[in-house]
Design a protein around this nucleic acid. Sequence first.
DNA 1: CACTTGACCTGTCCGC
DNA 2: TGCGGACAGGTCAAGT
Length: 308
Amino acid sequence: MPELPEVETIKRGLGKLLPGKCIANVTFDNPKSFPNAPGDVAKFLVGAKIVKVKRRAKVLLIDLDSKYTLVIHLKMTGQLVYVRTRELSLKTEDRRRKTKYSVPTERWGGGHPSDSLTGKLPDKSTRVVFSFADGSKLFFNDQRKFGWVRLLPTDEVPNIDFFKKVGPEPLSSKFTSREFAARLQRRKNTNIKAAILDQSVIAGIGNIYADESLWGAKIHPASLVKNLSIQKLNKLYEEIRYVLRLSIAKGGSTDRNYIDATGKKGSYLSFAKVFRREGQDCPRCGTKIVKIRVAGRGTHICPKCQKA
DNA sequence: CACTTGACCTGTCCGC
DNA sequence: TGCGGACAGGTCAAGT
């Protein structure tokens, strides 16, 4: 579920919280969540200081001063939540003992309680825990275990298969409608929804923003790319950039379990036009929104605005 | 090579 | 109430 706006929101949150933090310890329960950790954790992770937090496509990158980078993919149910520990006052043995044994971490989540998912961490979905020298922690939670964390030398990150083939950032000022249309031609015999979900065509779009941008451009998701006019593709380009920007401004979409670095939900879905709105009226023409299946995904359309 | 489908997982929801 | 099955969706491997 985390698509570009959600990962961007997490990046911005962690970018304010993590730089300068020194990693004191890393624990993980599920080897698949951190495939190459065992040998490299001690050498290049513990003792390293966080330099910068970045994003490329739906991937989060945390640069360390050890010339290594944590590469994190949240896939569908991944979360990265930062928890500040209760400020310790170590004046007396009593207070130290009380703090140590009773309240390892304070309530997590920021903002208004109704905006956050409440609970204690770690929980049963916690796969990796990064502990920092100041006592704060970063939890990588992932209910379905599709996500992963990898530790790679920073200069090798661009060489992994995913980054070698991934398409341009849709919100980059260098990304033009002309380039968008040109890149779509590699998938000209498939449907437009599959084409924009293809990360090698354009980075960062997932099911939510595919449906929203196709509605905005009045394109049926099953339309073959080769049958779409250049005007339609230009409109789609504009809509993709519009919905991604709007969602970032709203802190992303919380469908089931997305939360940001401080535990807060995103509010984009309350602005969504069709996603998860089957049975409701199309905001443009009033026709009932229907849910169909395209490219193997649940797909939401207005059958009147988006003709096949 | 282009394209489609299934696998990877776990939790939730729906119908019987 | 319990239970089986469908479904959720990002990416990759394997299939056509």
